[in-house]
């Protein structure tokens, strides 16, 4: 079928052209090596980083920060979100401040946290936790608030026990928005972590790229760009997969 071939091949046209232009520009007396290296050099650079174990070290450092910070921020967000939704008092006293701080992009807190916590691990964990906290808290709050009165009335009519209400009503109703919040929190945390590592770190993917930039190692930088994209994609897709498995009853 030519139309299927057409559909399969069309997406490859533009990337193919870019690759061809890239190879063309770097073959012979092309651009200086500080500006553009041939694709093969990027692959060599990747192999070098891989075999020396350097890449693994950077990856380990970044992922450890991401997961630790995310775990802290997400669990705090979960707890605070429930409180904010269930307690009018908590909402009255902390709601406005929560909303105000939420207006400030996480990145803007980096210099402040560096001055408060120094350039060691502390500020990176703090900024990752902060980035994860807000989306998770907000989604949890919305999820808990969104439980319809009608459903609770149905539960009351059938005299469901509190455990049943929790397991059969509150959890299923809140899990989808909370999962979405967690996913959003994780991807935001990753973005902010890369920025934090670009600013100040001894290791990590961001620091690897920043060093590459300072030493004009364009191959290292390109490997880093591809990796940050890949990791972000994998985190997002992994979470979406989990969402689909857990919330099969949803149509969308």
């Amino acid at each position: 079928m030519p139309s299927i071939l057409h559909r399969r091949l069309l997406p490859l046209v533009v990337p193919g052209l870019i690759l061809a232009a890239w190879i063309g520009a770097t073959s012979g007396e092309g651009a200086p090596l500080q500006v553009l290296v041939p694709p093969s050099a990027v692959i060599d650079g990747f192999n070098e980083l891989l075999s020396s174990g350097e890449l693994a070290d950077h990856l380990r450092a970044s992922l450890w920060r991401l997961l630790t910070g995310f775990a802290i921020g997400a669990s705090l967000g979960l707890g605070f979100g429930i409180l904010l939704a269930r307690s009018a008092l908590v909402a009255a006293y902390t709601g406005p401040f929560f909303q105000a701080v939420r207006q400030v992009p996480s990145i803007a807190f980096l210099p402040m946290l560096i001055l408060l916590l120094g350039v060691d691990e502390g500020f990176k964990l703090a900024i990752v936790a902060k980035a994860a906290f807000f989306p998770v808290a907000l989604a949890t709050h919305d999820g808990v608030k969104g439980i319809s009165k009608g459903w609770l009335e149905v539960a009351a009519i059938y005299r469901l026990s509190p455990v049943r209400v929790l397991l059969r009503l509150i959890l299923p109703a809140t899990v989808p928005p909370v999962l979405t919040g967690l996913r959003l929190g994780l991807t935001r945390a990753w973005i902010v972590l890369v920025a934090a590592e670009l600013m100040a770190a001894e290791n990590g993917i961001g620091q690897m790229m920043e060093m590459g930039r300072q030493m004009f190692r364009i191959d290292t930088v390109m490997v880093g760009v591809a990796l940050t994209g890949l990791i972000g994609f994998a985190l997002d897709q992994g979470f979406r997969l989990a969402e689909r498995r857990l919330v099969r009853w949803k149509t969308a």
């Binding site: 069309l10 997406p11 046209v13 533009v14 930039r213 364009i218 930088v221 390109m222 760009v225 994209g229």
Partner: peptide, 26 residues
């Protein structure tokens, strides 16, 4: 859509500030 969709989708995966060192070099 077929020409540019998948490519843009791939580019979108990189956190914006992840481009910064590369753009800085260029």
């Amino acid at each position: 859509e077929r020409l540019f969709g998948p490519l843009l989708q791939a580019f979108r995966q990189v956190p914006l500030l992840g481009w910064l060192p590369l753009v800085g070099l260029w």
